[in-house]
């Protein structure tokens, strides 16, 4: 296969209220590329459109959502043109996703084995016995102790960390090409977070997965990802290789985000916070959505929304400061 594994071209996903009067541009004109085996971090504040972007890839959006424009090319084919039945064969099988809350994402009424074996039975039409055998191997792969007894247990009998690893096992059960992890560690405590991230990385290497990591934790992005996309108010304001962006962020929002991380041995007395609140996504400010909070705001920012500018080889930024003439 030539070309990237996954490519978004000018994707816009909007939410329309029941009477059609309020339109929320949850994802607005986002383009990005993900190669096989690559790791992309999507960072941004709550409500910046990260989760909507992820659910768009799987076409599992709430009924109020509308794809307004764009293409989602997966292995060269546009997912927005697939039928529901074709999409079902992709979900869980080609593109898998790990949800945020391990406590709530397992069904309390079915055993672990049943829930891990389920996608294998549905996608590969495996018999119950062979699917359970695979489920057992998957539990071993995600380092669950005593998997033989755990398969017959119910979710409430397991700890949060174990449940999250089970959710991971479900996600990789059919050997997908892309794994989306939506803040998979926010509800876990720190030591377990680290273990889980290592586990995800090992799984990624052993299965040659492309990983999309949705988080608001820039530390995790630095540790896990080779590319990062920064979202603000539905738009991707900056995108590029992690090292490049962490060393020379082009967008003032990215700069502010990086300055708000505490670092060991930091001589500064106070952390810098970003003044103001993120905008109401159904009524964003005119021009650049970040301008009311931007320390480097110019007149042009208040009226005209900046397009995507290429800052360096692989780095893009949606900021007038990055415009060719102004640098």
């Amino acid at each position: 296969m030539t070309g990237p594994l996954l490519e978004l071209r000018h994707l816009s996903t909007h939410y329309v209220s029941a009477r059609g009067t309020r339109v929320t541009r949850a994802v607005d004109d986002v383009s990005l590329v993900l190669d096989q085996g690559g790791t992309l971090g999507i960072v941004g504040e709550s409500g910046s459109g990260k989760t909507t972007l992820a659910l768009s890839l799987l076409r599992l959006l709430p009924p109020a959502a509308r794809f307004v424009s764009g293409e989602i090319l997966f292995e060269g084919e546009d997912l927005l043109k697939k039928s529901d039945r074709e999409m079902r064969r992709i979900r869980g099988k080609r593109i898998a996703m790990i949800l945020q809350d391990p406590m709530a994402s397992l069904n309390p009424l079915f055993t672990i084995g049943d829930q891990v074996a389920e996608p294998i039975r549905v996608h590969e039409h495996a018999s119950r016995g062979s699917a359970w055998g695979r489920a057992l191997d998957l539990l071993k792969a995600v380092r669950i102790a005593a998997p033989e007894s755990r398969v017959r247990e119910y979710p409430h009998q397991l700890s949060g960390g174990m449940r999250q690893r089970i959710v991971g096992a479900i996600a990789i059960s059919c050997e997908p090409r892309v794994l989306i992890a939506d803040e998979p560690t926010t509800s876990l405590d720190l030591t377990i977070q680290a273990q889980y991230l290592n586990l995800l990385r090992d799984l990624q290497r052993s299965h040659n997965l492309a990983l999309i990591f949705i988080t608001h934790n820039l530390g995790i992005v630095a540790k896990m990802c080779d590319q990062v996309a920064v979202m603000y108010a539905g738009r991707m304001v900056e995108w590029g290789p992690v090292k490049q962006i962490y060393n020379s962020p082009a967008h003032p929002y990215t700069q502010a985000l990086l300055e708000s991380i505490p670092r060991l041995g930091d001589s500064r007395k106070r952390l810098t916070a970003i003044d103001g609140q993120p905008p109401d996504p159904s009524a964003p400010p005119a021009g650049c959505a970040f301008h009311p909070r931007c320390p480097k705001v110019m007149d042009r920012c208040r009226t005209e929304a900046p397009p995507e500018f290429r800052v360096a080889d692989l780095q893009t930024s949606r900021c007038w400061l990055s415009a060719p003439g102004s640098r």
Partner: peptide, 10 residues
């Protein structure tokens, strides 16, 4: 969430 996961499983 578990119904969401069931749909995610395809």
């Amino acid at each position: 969430e578990y119904v969401k996961l069931a749909r995610l499983k395809g």
